Amino acid sequence: MRNATDEEGPVRSAREEALRAGAPATDPGVGVPTGTVARRLGVSPTTIRSWERRYGIGPSHRGPGRHRRWSPEDISLLDEMCRLTARGIPPAEAARSAAQGAHRTSDDGPLPARPATAGEPAAARSAPEPAHHPRPGGSRAMPLGTVRPECRGLARAAVRLDGPEVAEILRGAVDALGPVRAWTEVMMPALRAAGRKWAADGEQYVEVEHLLSWHVSAALRTAAVAPVRYREASPVLLAAMPGEQHTLPLEAVAAGMAVHGLPYRMLGAAVPPRALLDAVTRLGPSAVLLWAQSRATADPHLAREVGSASWGTAGARLDTLVATVGPGWNRHEPLTGLACPRTLEAALDLVHRAVAARAPSAADPPERKGAPCSPNG
């Protein structure tokens, strides 16, 4: 017998009413089992059973032996539940909303589809995917620990390879939290969980990690190249150390700088030493961020060379702030004369102050009158 709170009662009632509202009779043997539904949605079977027990989000029919059999309408209801909880809506409220949506659909026909993502046909969102064509994904949800609801929803969408939903969650996270916090609290934990699953299960989760990485980079780069007015100051140079291919954290910093109107130049992955030193002397940057993900790519000697570089006319040489950023530097001794921020938030604050110090007027706001300019132009 269910132990339901007063809040859960209306949820069950709405669900039961929706099922009574003209739903066609279905053969109890028709439908898919809970494990198949869980794989499709990127959640665990335990989560689905918990939603059924607490909020009445259960299958319309059961097969012999009380085995749950989920119809396409049932799966559509669970899919909506996943989308709502992924955006931070409490499960009880999400269950009520999903059940009410199912009731409106049965009374008035299908609900209008949400706007399609760029490049996605509008019809792709107009109806639930048939139950006999489950979306590919892992055999179980990725373990995440204690994370934000957006991160959990992002991981679920990635497991079921729902690219449009991944993109939508990422856009919302960047808008709500800012690029750096979105990276730290939403994107990075999901990517780490995908990486752990990849390492544990071999090739099974490569597609999940690749899809997620692509969309994370797209979200960050979209924010980084948005047309804004940049402060009139020497730019900040962002570069990964030679041999370093991981640049998503640098892309998060670049996007964070764009949000604050701080000019930057992004050199990206694996910048050769000569090219890096040449860029420093040519640009005369306000600051240089040197990213290293692993200890093997962190090169203290090159970092010192960058820190000793100077430019300008004789007698008026200028020095730059050089900061070593990333976990690859953590196993090295701090380098004298160089900044060593431990987090991306600290690095962003550091370069913000460096740019302000080089600006014509440190009191001027980041957004200035005049035509927008490109951070990399």
Rank of each mutant, 00 (worst) to 15 (best):
I89T: 09
S126T: 14
A339E: 09
A303M: 10
T26H: 11
L212G: 01
T146S: 07
L344N: 00
P179E: 07
R171W: 07
R125P: 00
V159G: 01
R274Y: 06
H332M: 08
L290M: 05
T146L: 11
Y230C: 00
G58S: 11
P33N: 13
E93Y: 02
H260T: 06
A200F: 05
A173M: 08
R358Q: 08
T47S: 05
R125V: 05
N376Q: 09
W51S: 02
P10R: 10
A173Q: 02
E80H: 11
A224W: 06
R265G: 00
G337F: 15
V32R: 04
G202N: 13
V174T: 09
I89M: 10
P365V: 15
L111P: 01
L302I: 15
E333W: 04
N330P: 00
M266S: 03
P341R: 09
G58K: 02
R221Y: 15
P28M: 14
R69E: 04
V288W: 04
R353A: 14
R20Q: 15
P134D: 15
L78F: 14
E333V: 12
A314R: 07
A219T: 04
W51T: 02
S234F: 02
A255Q: 03
P334D: 14
T85L: 05
P360D: 12
P263Q: 14
E7F: 13
L41F: 05
P179Y: 08
V253R: 00
A252Q: 03
G163Y: 03
A155C: 09
T336R: 14
A127N: 04
S294A: 11
G312F: 11
T146K: 11
L289E: 03
A102L: 08
M241V: 08
P136F: 06
V208R: 00
W51Y: 09
R96V: 00
M1F: 10
E209C: 01
V180T: 07
W311I: 03
R282Q: 13
A158V: 02
E367W: 10
P300H: 15
A314L: 13
V30M: 15
P164G: 03
N3L: 13
P179S: 13
P121E: 12
W329T: 02
R20A: 12
E367P: 00
R83N: 03
P115L: 12
S97K: 05
P128G: 13
P341A: 14
W70C: 01
H215W: 07
A92I: 08
S374F: 12
I75N: 01
P375M: 10
R135P: 00
G370Y: 09
C340I: 00
L170E: 04
W198M: 07
R331T: 11
D299W: 07
G29F: 07
L344D: 00
G101M: 12
G256V: 03
S126Y: 12
G195T: 08
R295A: 13
G284F: 12
S60Y: 01
R295I: 11
I75A: 02
R160H: 04
L250H: 03
S234M: 04
